[in-house]
Structure formats: C-alpha cells, structure tokens
C-alpha cells in the first residue's frame, strides 16, 4: 500500500510542479509532497526523519518559497499554454517504472526486513543500558544519531537565516517598489474576532506549558525539541494573533530572536565541544558527568533544549517577518 502511495507521490508532485504555471500552487504542491513523504517516513518508523521532513520540507521550505514568491511574480512567464503530452507520458512512464522497481521491497511490517534485523535489535536491547531514556526514539535521535539531529537543527537554522536574508531585503524592496501589495497586518484583523479571543486566550498558557512538558518529557514519551519548539511557537503565534503583533514584538525583538535562534544551535554545539574538551568524541555525552548514564541524560536534555529553542524562535521569527511584511516596522530601522 505504502509502495503505491510512494510512487503516486513522486509522480504527482513532479507532475504538479511541472504542470502548474501558478508558482503559488506549485509551492503548495511541493509542500504537500514533503508533508506526505514525512508521513511515509512516519509509517516506516523513521520518526526523526519524518519530523525533519515535516518541519523543513512542509514547513520552513514552504515559508521560504512563499516569501520568495511574494517578491516575484506569482506566475511564471510563458508563451503558450497547452496540455503537454510529453509531460503526461513521462509521468506515467516514471510511475510505471517505479512501480516495477518497487516489486521486491520488503513487505510493510515484515519482521525479517533488513531494517528490523540489522541495527534495531541493539537499539531495542541495549539502549536502556547504554543511553538511558526509556524512549528509544529519543536515544537514537539525540545520542546514537545526535550528529544527524544537530545537522537537522542546523537545517532549521539555515532556513531561518535564508528567510531573514530574503525578508529583510523584501522590506527594502517593498519600500522602493510601490507595486508591492500593502500588507494588512493579520493581527489587526484578528483582534476583532471575539470568538477567537474568548476561546483561545485561556488556552495559551496551557499550550506553552505543554510545550515545556514535551520538551523535558521527551526522554520518557514521544516528544523532544522539534515538537516542543513547534508547539511553543504555535502558542506564541496565537498570542500574537490575539493581542497583536506589537505586543509579541516587545518580548521577541528581532535581536532577541536572532540571539535565541543562534543560541539554540550554539548550546547544542557546545555540548559536543565540551565532550571533546573532556576527552571524548564530539557529542560523546558519556564524558559530561561522573558516570556515563548521567552524562547521557544531561547531554540529551541540553541538546533537546537547544533544538527546542532554535525551532521555537525560528518559527516565531518567520511568523513575525511575514506578518510584518510590507509594513514599515521598527525592526527594520533597528536592524539597519
């Protein structure tokens, strides 16, 4: 089933991108593609990959794409518009070939699949002693493959840097170019919505609390820095919608956000560096405390915190940037 889904995915996404002249729709298609493949990874138990793909592919890449789109024309230029049989043929050819190629994939859930027989046994049997946390996913994510996770956090950071680069430029160009659509501040509009205010306002503290729970309870249940960061950011975004952007901006000034975004990565990295300085390899948490288990615990905690900080602040920063799009905001003056 997932094999079919997968082949369908590739074909649809590529076809959609190639067929659609409307860049906005194409962007959405790509985002959808990323989201679906994240789902696919989830199904295949590669949770960390799925999370990265979801947050990066479906989330931040899309945001980046949209921010770029808003600076350029929404439609690609073209001379003629006609149904292209070549594209159609190609898509179906690739689809068919992929189907053919997926014939001898291991069946879904097959316990004899290489995935389940090679590395997983050790993770299942020994991670409790070697690393500690009962949540094996967290062990794999933050310790066995901590370098990957660091890389993924850096991907998020990179996306933020890219978005900041583009959007600060956007403001400048927006001023120079009066054709830019004037950005209605969403917050201004939303503030009038009574239902929203009444219904959501009480939830915000709980959302933020839940985020902290997911953050620090990642050792024991599903969760961790990525999820926590996103949830926390969602809370803040909701707050902004209700109380207005300026209120949030007072707390999260552009400079503070920059520091937080960078700080999370630096925290993660410095855990690794400290491990190095203490005589271990990079990200070898064993060396962090007097005995390996405590060290692992401490390391995972700090590392997840770093991820959470970066993810949350990146989300908030992106939201603020977009919400403030086209508006001459104080931050532009400040950062200049």
């Amino acid at each position: 089933m997932d094999v079919l889904l997968f082949a369908f995915l590739v074909a649809t996404a590529v076809w959609g991108v190639s067929r659609l002249r409307d860049l906005f729709a194409a962007t959405m298609m790509l985002s959808l593609f990323s989201l679906l493949s994240a789902g696919l990874f989830m199904v295949m138990d590669a949770v960390d990959v799925a999370f990265t793909e979801a947050s990066v592919g479906a989330g931040i890449s899309t945001v980046l794409l949209l921010s770029t789109l808003s600076l350029t024309h929404r439609r690609e230029k073209r001379r003629e518009r006609r149904l292209d049989p070549a594209a159609l043929v190609l898509v179906f050819a690739v689809g068919a070939l992929l189907l053919w190629g997926s014939q001898d994939m291991p069946a879904y859930g097959d316990p004899q699949a290489p995935v389940h027989t090679y590395m997983v046994p050790r993770f299942l049997e020994q991670s409790g002693e070697e690393v500690g946390p009962p949540n094996i996913v967290t062990s794999v994510l933050a310790s066995y493959r901590g370098y990957d996770t660091f890389g993924e956090a850096t991907v998020v950071f990179t996306a933020a840097v890219g978005a900041l680069l583009l959007l600060t430029g956007l403001r400048r160009r927006g001023e120079a170019d009066s054709r830019e659509p004037g950005g209605d501040e969403q917050g201004v509009r939303m503030r009038g919505n009574v239902i929203l205010r009444v219904a959501i306002r009480p939830m915000i503290p709980f959302i933020l609390m839940f985020a902290l729970y997911v953050q620090f309870h990642g050792d024991y249940g599903p969760g961790g820095g990525f999820q926590a960061g996103v949830i926390f950011a969602a809370g803040v975004i909701l707050a902004a919608l209700i109380w207005g952007l300026h209120r949030v901006r007072e707390v999260f000034t552009p400079r503070a956000l920059e520091l937080l975004i960078a700080g999370g990565i630096l925290l993660y990295g410095s855990v690794g560096v400290v491990a190095m300085v203490r005589g271990g390899n990079f990200l070898d948490y064993d060396t962090l405390a007097h005995d390996p288990v405590h060290g692992q615990h401490l390391g995972i905690l700090l590392v997840e915190l770093g991820v959470g900080i970066t993810v949350a602040s990146v989300m908030i920063a992106l939201f603020l940037l977009f919400a403030g799009r086209g508006r001459r905001s104080p931050s532009a003056v400040e950062s200049g």
């Binding site: 920059e258 975004i261 630096l266």
Partner: peptide, 25 residues
C-alpha cells in the same frame, strides 16, 4: 584534542561559527 578531533572540527568549526556570526551581528 585538536589532533584527535581533526575530522570533526572540519565540520564543527564553520557550523558553530555561523550562529556565532548571528550573535556577533
């Protein structure tokens, strides 16, 4: 430490310098 971690430093140096740039501003 440096000689032991040469392969790692190769990546970690610029990787940590990037957020540092953002911090330094």
């Amino acid at each position: 430490i440096v000689t032991e971690n040469l392969p790692m430093l190769q990546v970690v140096l610029p990787m940590l310098a990037a957020p540092l740039c953002v911090v330094v501003h």
